[in-house]
Structures are given as structure tokens and as C-alpha cells.
């Protein structure tokens, strides 16, 4: 194999700019999808622990649907199929007038998918956090909503920091699928650099390194957060 190595291309104009802008979109897609995933996932996870059988059924159905369809298919369903299924006016608006339609649809589908994964973690956290403290809260006159807000959810989040960190890293890495519907995120940009310069090894090495170092940084920071949450007297030592 003859390959002309040229790492300096990564720092040359305009390729450095492409990679940085790609990173920017990757961060934007991941962060926006994570906000949707965390918020909606918490709601669905809570629903699966409520006394009401209807709420539980809705939560379970949501999780089963989104967990069992491949993410890439979900992204295609949102981007290509949804506009055709909606009433014509809305479909046209989605395709033509929605600003950044590929970005928006990537965020929505990644967010909804992430929500089903977060929901499972939140549900497990609430169930582990225990009925005991919930009873104690109710016995002091807190409403069920207040018990969730002040007791069960804070405990569940603390318990599941490692799992939620994992889910965030998954969103970050899964965001590369957004390139399939035309979001110019990091992977798409790396491919563009490779196509223009023929330095594909350097381009994808750079992308891999950026993904890996950011993931590593997040994992490192979250481990510190977890240690602090535990030091503040949470569940490591238990309550008994």
C-alpha cells in the first residue's frame, strides 16, 4: 500500500473549519436530544411507577415501541415518512418551511429514542430508592407529586448517574447517524475532508480522536459528580 501521509491537512484552511463546525453540530444535536430524552424519559419513567394502571400502560407501551425499532429506522421514519402521513399542509410545512428540517428531525428522533432508555433508568432508580421514603414523605402530608419531586426523583438520579452518563455518551455517539439525513455533523464533515483531500485516514482518525476524547472527558467529569453526590451522604452507606 502506498499512502501519502499528510496530517497537516487537518489544520489547513478550510478543512479545520469544517471539522470544527461539524463538532459544533454534533454537540448541538447531542445536547438538544439529551434535553428531550432526559425530560421526556423522566416523565415516562415516573409514569411506569405511578399507582394508576393507565399511566403504567402508556409508559410501558412507549418504551416497547422505541426500544424495539432500530434507531436509524426511527430517524428515517421521522424524516421521510412522517411528512407523508401528516395532513398535507403540515407535511408541506415540515418539508419546506421548518428551519433546519434535518437538524430538527434528527434531534426529535434521537431525543424520543433516548427518552425510552432514560425512562428505564429512572424507573429502576425510583424502584430502588424505595417505597419506604415515599411513605414517610406522604405521611408528613406531602402530595404524591411533591414526593416524586423532592424525594424519589433526586434519589433516583443520584442512584443512576453512571447509567445516565452512559446514555448521554450513547446520544453523543448516536448523533453521527444524523449524517444520513444530511446534518453536517462531525462524521459527515470528516467524510467531506476525506473526499476532498484523499487523506481519509487522517480525517477519520481526527474524528475518532475527537469523539473518544470528549466521551472520556464526560465520563471523567460524571465520575467526579457521582462521587460528590455519594459523599453528600447518599446511598453508598444506606439508611440502616
Amino acid at each position: 500500500m502506498r499512502y501519502n501521509w499528510n496530517w497537516s491537512v487537518l489544520f489547513a484552511d478550510p478543512y479545520l473549519g469544517w471539522l470544527l463546525s461539524g463538532l459544533g453540530w454534533t454537540v448541538l444535536v447531542s445536547a438538544a436530544a439529551w434535553i428531550i430524552g432526559l425530560a421526556l424519559g423522566s416523565v415516562i419513567g415516573v409514569m411506569r411507577t405511578l399507582p394508576s394502571p393507565i399511566a403504567r400502560a402508556i409508559g410501558a407501551t412507549y418504551v416497547e415501541i422505541f426500544r424495539n425499532i432500530p434507531l436509524l429506522v426511527q430517524i428515517f421514519l421521522f424524516y421521510f415518512v412522517l411528512p407523508e402521513l401528516l395532513p398535507r399542509e403540515m407535511g408541506r410545512w415540515l418539508k419546506r418551511d421548518l428551519p433546519h428540517p434535518e437538524f430538527t428531525m434528527a434531534v426529535i428522533s434521537l431525543g424520543l429514542y433516548t427518552a425510552c432508555r432514560v425512562a428505564e433508568q429512572v424507573r429502576a432508580g425510583i424502584n430502588t430508592a424505595g417505597r419506604g421514603q415515599a411513605s414517610a414523605g406522604l405521611a408528613t402530608g406531602l402530595t404524591l407529586a411533591q414526593v416524586y419531586r423532592f424525594i424519589l426523583l433526586p434519589l433516583a438520579y443520584r442512584l443512576t448517574i453512571p447509567a445516565l452518563t452512559n446514555e448521554f455518551l450513547n446520544v453523543f455517539k448516536n448523533s453521527s447517524l444524523a449524517l444520513t439525513i444530511g446534518v453536517l455533523e462531525l462524521t459527515a464533515r470528516a467524510r467531506a475532508v476525506a473526499d476532498y483531500t484523499y487523506q481519509s485516514i487522517e480525517a477519520f482518525a481526527a474524528a475518532s480522536l475527537i469523539y473518544a476524547s470528549i466521551s472520556f472527558l464526560i465520563a471523567f467529569l460524571m465520575r467526579r459528580v457521582e462521587r460528590r453526590a455519594r459523599l453528600a451522604g447518599t446511598l453508598a452507606a444506606g439508611t440502616h
Binding site: A136, A139, T140, P154, R158, A229, L235, T239, H240
Partner: peptide, 15 residues
């Protein structure tokens, strides 16, 4: 809120 209750396993909020 007008009736206090104390449990066998305390059930303090650990956080």
C-alpha cells in the same frame, strides 16, 4: 400533616 408517623426503619431522606 396533622398526624405524625414514625417507621421501624426510620426512612430518613438520605440525600
Amino acid at each position: 400533616s396533622r398526624i405524625g408517623m414514625v417507621f421501624q426503619s426510620f426512612e430518613l431522606y438520605p440525600h
